[in-house]
């Protein structure tokens, strides 16, 4: 290593030798080669992961003839944005489908939190007979996915004449044992003094639940809501079972209907439709990345 020596004069006029040397690298700092290598590898990975999005967008702009002839070119020669997106929004009631998605997801996560929070509070902080049995049922619920019990739920919905309704899309998911479990863990960490003070102030247990517990469990509730919206926006298993009408379709089901209606190889319009149904969640994600990643990490489960 080279050492630079520079002589300076201090105030007393004595020559002082100050050694300046290249800063020794910290052990956990990467060398330039390693930094470049890291970026190159990560960029290649990111390119592969993002490739489908690029192609989706690009193809949704291309005319049908070009889709079959353009090869690997991402930039369309003949733009067909209007034609493709018009098809995507008119062959199926796309706006209605997107609104269905928003409505169903919001309704599900609202009900889930509305029902789960009081139950979680009671399980975490109150003593009552049957508490252990209830908790056992919740653990059971964590083990049994909706897919597995869809058969009796379908039979019941059919018998109750609920097929092809919003209710059948929402009701089976109003209970999230996962939310109860998650909230219970969070509520256990709320200081006891806070809840005792609220009782001293004369609040009822229900009031404590909404006015003391909810604000404290808010980050967990947001995480859960995001996780829930992602899961239900994506779910196609249940909607496919109980919905057969275009106007009630959720976004993924709407896309399947669109594919069925198109049948052919009109990839431009098909990609336009996929852009339409996947954009809301992606945009939502890009605006709230941190909350999204936290939501999925802390809940640790997906789908």
């Amino acid at each position: 290593m080279s050492t630079m020596i520079s002589a300076t004069q201090d105030s007393a006029g004595v020559a002082v030798v100050v050694r300046k040397r290249p800063r020794a690298a910290r052990f956990d700092e990467l060398s330039t080669t390693a930094r470049v290598l890291r970026l190159v590898v990560l960029f290649i990975g990111a390119a592969i992961l993002l490739l489908p999005y690029a192609w989706m967008l690009s193809t949704s702009f291309k005319a049908q003839s070009e889709v079959f002839s353009s090869g690997l070119s991402l930039i369309p020669q003949h733009w067909a944005i209007v034609a493709n997106y018009t098809k995507a929004f008119t062959r199926v009631p796309m706006v209605q489908i997107l609104l269905n998605g928003v409505f169903v997801c919001l309704a599900i996560s609202t009900f889930q939190i509305l029902f789960a929070l009081p139950a979680a509070y009671a399980l975490a902080r109150l003593k009552f007979r049957g508490r252990d049995l209830l908790f056992g049922c919740i653990i059971l619920g964590l083990l049994v996915p909706i897919h597995a019990v869809s058969i009796p739920l379908y039979a019941a919905s059919r018998w109750l004449n609920l097929l092809n309704t919003y209710a059948v899309l929402i009701v089976p998911f109003t209970l999230s044992v996962f939310a109860i479990f998650q909230f219970r863990q969070v509520i256990k960490t709320i200081p006891d003094d806070l809840i005792q003070a609220a009782r001293m102030d004369g609040m009822s247990e229900m009031a404590i639940c909404w006015r003391v517990v909810l604000p404290n469990a808010w980050p967990a509730a947001t995480s859960f809501a995001i996780f829930s919206v992602v899961a239900h926006w994506n779910d196609v298993y249940w909607p496919q079972i109980v919905i057969s009408q275009n106007r009630l379709a959720t976004p993924p089901l709407g896309l399947l209907f669109f594919r069925a209606a198109e049948a052919g190889d009109d990839y431009g319009a098909l990609m336009a439709a996929t852009v339409a149904v996947s954009a809301p969640l992606v945009i939502f994600f890009l605006f709230a990345q941190k909350a999204f990643i936290e939501g999925v990490t802390s809940t640790g489960l997906k789908g």
Binding site: A46, N234, M271, T274, L281, Q289
Partner: peptide, 20 residues
């Protein structure tokens, strides 16, 4: 950037991306 890029597929509509 990388964290978001790698995470994007997780939050994307899988039915749509399957089509792509």
């Amino acid at each position: 950037f990388f964290r978001s890029a790698y995470f994007l597929p997780v939050v994307s509509l899988i039915v749509a991306m399957a089509t792509v």
